[in-house]
Nucleic acid binder design. Structure first.
Lengths: 111, 111
DNA sequence: CCTACATACAACCATAAGGTTGTATCAATG
DNA sequence: CATTGATACAACCTTATGGTTGTATGTAGG
């Protein structure tokens, strides 16, 4: 199924507390849009838009269940977002390693 | 120093390709704002604004070096952002574990 | 100290985001 | 098959975002 990864969309989607809460709740994967909407102080349509934004970002999917559509978080997409942060971490470590190497070299030169 | 964590700001800051590239470059922590700006097809002022957004999100800091200000990525803040994604992952695992437990219970009930 | 370089900030513009209400579709049920 | 419940979508308003240019501040050197 390989949902596409658009970091702009994914991070933008995560940059809103309501949407992050929807992501959290949708991990259980039990509530429809209307049920989700009851948790927030805004209209049903507003929540529906938030879900649509999460859906376009590949962070949730909707599965028909009777007359409802159950919202479910796509954990794989969250992992991919985390993967970018991991890469920064790796770059950082690489830099630190090079610095350490320099220091080590200096020490060896001293010795 | 404990930079504050505002997920809205952090994720919004990361939701732009130019800013992500600045974060990446600033891991090396060698370039000033003007030097960074040369990499992008936009004005110096625009890049400066991007840096300011990253700074407010706690993702980079500026250190005076002569007449320049060197931009440096704050890896700790990236780790904190990743931490949120890790928590989602944990919730997911918890859910999977509970499901597994149910299946296991069912099997045991069958046996 | 005057000049030049690097950064900062204000004012402005176009477009996107986040909310509203209202209307349309679509599936289950009496 | 008419009604109800759940979702979708369009139109609209207000504010935020990302870009521009222009001006001000601050630090280094001749």
């Amino acid at each position: 199924m390989q949902t596409t990864l658009d970091f702009d969309r994914v991070f933008r989607a995560l940059a809103d507390a309501t949407r992050r809460d929807i992501v959290r709740r949708a991990i259980a994967g039990e509530e429809g849009v209307a049920e989700l909407a009851e948790h927030y102080p805004m209209s049903f349509a507003a929540v529906q838009k938030h879900v649509a934004i999460l859906e376009r970002a590949g962070l949730v999917t909707k599965v028909r269940s009777g007359r409802r559509k159950v919202v479910r978080t796509n954990v794989e997409q969250l992992r991919r977002a985390r993967g970018l942060l991991d890469r920064y971490e790796e770059l950082w470590r690489g830099r630190v390693d090079r610095m350490t190497a320099l220091v080590t070299d200096a020490k060896e030169a001293d010795a």
